[in-house]
Design a protein around this nucleic acid. Sequence first.
RNA 1: GGGCGUGUGGCCUAGUCAGGAUAUGGCACUUGCCUCCUAAGCAAGUGGUCGAGGGUUCGAAUCCCUCCACGCCCGCCA
Length: 563
Amino acid sequence: MNMDPFEPFRRAASEHVMRRLAEEYGVEESIQLETGGDIADFTYPCFQLAKKIGKSPADIALSLSAGVQAGIIRVRATGGYVNIDAQPELLARETVKAVNGMRGEYGRTDAGATTVLVEHTSINPTGPMHIGRTRNAVIGDTLVRCMRQAGVAVSSEYYVNDVGKQVVVLYWGLKKLMKTMPSGKADHELLQYYVKANEMLEKDESAAAEVKDLQQRLEGGDTALLNETRKAAELVLGGIRESLQSINVIHDKFSFESDLIRDGSVRKVIDRLRQLPEAGEEKGAWFIPFGGEEEADRFYFTRSDGTSLYTTRDLAYHMDKLSRFGHLVDVLGEDQKLGMKFLIRTLELLGEAKRIDFLFHSFVSLVEGRMSTRHGVGVMVDDVVTEAKARAREEVLKRRSDMPAEQVDRIASAVGVGAVRYNIVRLQPEKKLVFKWDEALNFEGSSAPFVQYSHARACSILEKAGGWTAVEPSYEEENELRLARQLAFFPSVLREVSRTLAVHKVATYAQQTASEFNQFYRVVPVLKAPENRLPARLSLVNAARIVLENTLGCLGIEAPKSM
RNA sequence: GGGCGUGUGGCCUAGUCAGGAUAUGGCACUUGCCUCCUAAGCAAGUGGUCGAGGGUUCGAAUCCCUCCACGCCCGCCA
């Protein structure tokens, strides 16, 4: 079975161009065909060759277009381009067969045997998730889902920073200020203490000294204290995990920073780093000078008192991850770039640098400005999701007054969560995102509900049809061929996303596919199709349904059968 | 000051890695389409010096240089 429906056509097209280049011009080279966008499936521009041999591009294109051998492609010269299309009826038939055959597996290609670990979210457990942190979680989770659908052996992990100043402050604040254990969602309820504690520390020097002392004991490996702070962190983490679950973000594992101190791996890394010929020391603090004499280019890996710093512990974590996986991907905010540069260069010095890729995303801001957990300002994901579901519920009730309440809620939840996730992931990660309520709650145009709606329409047709007997499908109508061609792109989109980590591409693909289905829906009758066309049409609708469902799955968005 | 990133119609955005044909969608606005498989939809229309200027090239949103604006970083914080 062809896992990528375009593959045999791409091969035939390349072979044709290479053969003709050799026959006509004696050019023997392996060529990479460009995709021709809307104009053609594949294209070969002749301008470079024209310059080299002094003939007109149009003449070359014409001569290369002749003599097609494989019956599965069509070749035509347009200006200076050789445009090659997969034979559309054949592409449509093969695609529909492949999708119906593979169903939930469609999208899988040969992804190699390397195991991949994607670390994402890794929010400091000091307060509820605001929409900025949510961007990391949504991007990371979408990447994991896309890779998995593409056939990559991938795991996801959350690195819990339950060590360091912020957790000490939380622990200290709770001890000083909290009278009773939280009754509701701890991440929200404990935030007040964390914010208050930070205020106190800014004003009160003796409090600051107290915290400093606690931090030193903690990072020195005080087991009792490690247990205490971890408990505080886990309290908040519980709330964060609920939030993650509410937006379908799944982690296979949670790794705790405190464990790296406890089991001595941080100590071991520091010892190895001090052995490096590059390592330097000043007043007891150890560092590696990167890039020269500048103080700013020093990567400090211990304090004067010998305790570890954040990046040192992260180094130990990365070495742990490298012992378990062949390829690492870290999803991080763009503020982490410098630290990660130090981390990578240090791993290189240690001879431990294997394949590590970073997916940096820029910040989410509000129209009013930056968000900050420490100052308690930000739009919280729980509030956005609640509002999105409420808004979705209104929309469902507007159109489906007869629906049972339980079903209304289920659809509203799928639509609300989908809208929030889509709105975040649709953007290139490196673009800054200004959170706007009306965009996050957008249910039309380029949005999750738009895609979900197409899926529901497909389901509705199939439900009414009841069933059909499988036949060798054939297609000839423009809209059928266009839709099938769109479905054929899915595996190459996933491969592209896995390679470049550009998760927004799957959102773009979802929108295009839904749009293509809606046009088909409008123009091509299915249930009222001529009897001899009905099975093929239903097969196509089912293929579209599957691809839409798989695509939404990659986005972590549910695909309701009805809306 | 230095480093990294971003700049595409009124607003949001694809395309930039790997230069190629008429620059992709959406929101908003104008106009049509529910006796017809769900109108969260479809069709048509208005709207563009691809931040500015130079360069490379047969060809530049895409590559190179300079500049401007914005974001992020430059701590023995995380």
